[in-house]
């Protein structure tokens, strides 16, 4: 087979020498043209070193590039906006925190205000109750003054109903004292004894006493009423069991009180004219408040004229 092929080449060489030369020349020229084209394309940038065609942007590619550029710009803008929004969110969160703190503070203040309103409400109710009590006392004073005036105006009626009128008058005083049921206050008036210079004697009393109230004659020394008579000053013994107070501690006494308040019945300040002592007893110790003592003083002044006129008419006053 190879011999045949060699034989063919020999025949071909003998008969086609010119054709081979022509083929070589043609091939060489083609190579040179190709190299020229290659160099031209490389120099003009139409192909790269390896002879590959450089890509020229097509219309579609340009659109895509523009879109990409647009997207990139939008992305940058969005990123900037995101940063701004994050800052804004942070600021808002800070503001929210601040407002929450402010709200919490305001809530505390509001709670305090609500509590203060409740306290004020209670204070008002307390004040109103006291005002109510004062206006009631005013009415009792008015009725006392009315009864005193009626007694002075109608002497005969007074003489006939003396005990009853005084009981009524002194009950007005008792009714102004608070916690009547607990204190069980009782009032008695003593005047100078007509026969014993060292003693006082019964003159009048409020309701609630037994008949024995008329028997007791307090000594001028050693009794609460006697002390008020001597000093011509209000004498309050908040606890008669306390030895420091001047009080007549009688043996086998049936006393049912711990407090005693004695008020001199007197007129004038510089040269007081004392005519008796008004005493109020109360069941518990420390039975009387300052306002009650002041009311008792007022009532003592109110009934003074009636007692004075009565004693004067009976010749028991100088």
């Amino acid at each position: 087979m190879s011999e045949d092929l060699l034989h063919l080449f020999e025949i071909f060489d003998k008969n086609t020498g010119w054709f081979f030369d022509f083929l070589v020349i043609t091939f060489s020229i083609s190579i040179a043209i190709l190299i020229g084209i290659y160099l031209y394309r490389f120099a003009s940038g139409k192909s790269d070193l390896m002879g590959r065609k450089t890509e020229e942007p097509t219309q579609d590619n340009q659109v895509t590039l523009l879109q990409l550029e647009s997207c990139r710009k939008k992305n940058e803008e969005l990123e900037k906006k995101q940063v701004l929004l994050e800052q804004e969110v942070q600021e808002l969160l800070d503001l929210l925190k601040e407002k929450e703190q402010e709200l919490s503070k305001n809530a505390v203040n509001l709670m305090k205000a609500v509590q203060e309103v409740e306290i004020l409400k209670q204070l008002y109710e307390e004040l109103d109750a006291k005002y109510d009590d004062e206006t009631y006392t005013m009415s009792q004073i008015m009725y006392t003054a009315d009864e005193v005036a009626a007694a002075i105006a109608n002497e005969e009626r007074f003489k006939q109903n003396r005990d009853d009128i005084f009981m009524n008058l002194l009950d007005y005083l008792v009714n102004t004292l608070k916690n009547f049921r607990d204190k069980n206050p009782r009032v008695i008036i003593h005047v100078k004894h007509p026969n014993h210079p060292g003693k006082l004697t019964h003159y009048a009393h409020s309701s609630g006493h037994t008949h024995r109230v008329k028997i007791y004659e307090p000594p001028l020394y050693g009794s609460a009423a006697g002390r008020a008579w001597r000093t011509q000053e209000v004498y309050y013994a908040p606890d008669v069991e306390d030895q420091k107070y001047e009080y007549d501690r009688k043996e086998h006494s049936r006393k049912v009180y711990r407090s005693i308040l004695c008020i001199p019945l007197k007129a004038g300040v510089e040269h007081p004219n004392i005519i008796g002592v008004l005493s109020i007893t109360g069941t518990p110790a420390n039975a009387f408040e300052k306002i009650e003592i002041e009311r008792a003083l007022l009532f003592a002044s109110l009934i003074y004229p009636l007692i004075y006129i009565d004693l004067k008419q009976e010749g028991r006053l100088p």
């Binding site: 009631y136 009792q140 008015m142 009714n175 049921r181 309701s207």
Partner: peptide, 27 residues
Amino acid sequence: NKLYREGSISRKQFMQKMKNGFFDHER
């Protein structure tokens, strides 16, 4: 006074009835 002492009326009722509106308008 009798009713109050007997406990038939409370102190509040007694006060209001005794006042009968006197000295109480402003309050």
